[in-house]
């Protein structure tokens, strides 16, 4: 509770600072949406807003409910699902196309989120060719945060 005008002013300043911090996190999240296909990592994202990777990860998770690493990988996997459904790229091509540097990390994360490996998904998508696209959209809906309860070992 504010008891004096000076306290009230201090509170208002604190609120304004908090919103500026949130806006900074928004810029980080927008950057992931914009540049996910680049070789981005949490360290690079943190440098972009002059934070340590650990601080960014904690603040981001407090604001958005998942770590920046998790957000970035989910963004990449969503895009990978779309590319794999298209069917004209190999799993390796798709992995690099969405900004993942390591096929192993990509496959592991894909399997965690989607429930099957990228190659099985690609195969399943091929078998669904000819199924009406509205049905495909339903069964292949993106998966953001499906694994949110699972601890994230990549938290810096």
């Amino acid at each position: 509770m504010s008891s004096t005008p000076a306290d009230a002013q201090k509170d208002a300043q604190k609120e304004a600072q908090r919103r500026r911090d949130l806006a900074l996190l928004r810029r980080v999240r927008d950057r992931m949406d914009r540049e996910y296909a680049q070789p981005l990592d949490v360290e690079a994202l943190a440098r972009g807003v002059n934070m340590s990777a650990g601080h960014l990860s904690r603040q981001f998770k407090a604001a958005y409910g998942e770590s920046p690493y998790s957000y970035l990988m989910t963004r990449r996997i969503e895009r990978a699902m779309a590319l794999l459904r298209r069917g004209d790229l190999s799993v390796t091509d798709v992995c690099f196309e969405v900004g993942c540097q390591s096929l192993g990390t990509f496959s592991t994360r894909f399997t965690e989120l989607v429930g099957m490996s990228p190659s099985s998904y690609r195969q399943a998508a091929r078998e669904m060719k000819g199924v009406p696209s509205c049905v495909v959209k339903q069964v292949s809906r993106p998966v953001r945060n499906q694994e949110a309860s699972v601890g994230d070992p990549h938290l810096a």
């Binding site: 810029r27 927008d30 949406d33 914009r34 699902m81 779309a82 459904r85 696209s133 959209k137 993106p142």
Partner: peptide, 12 residues
Amino acid sequence: EVVQEPVDQPYG
């Protein structure tokens, strides 16, 4: 401020 470059979305 760009959030997303033009892309063909899975939603068609």
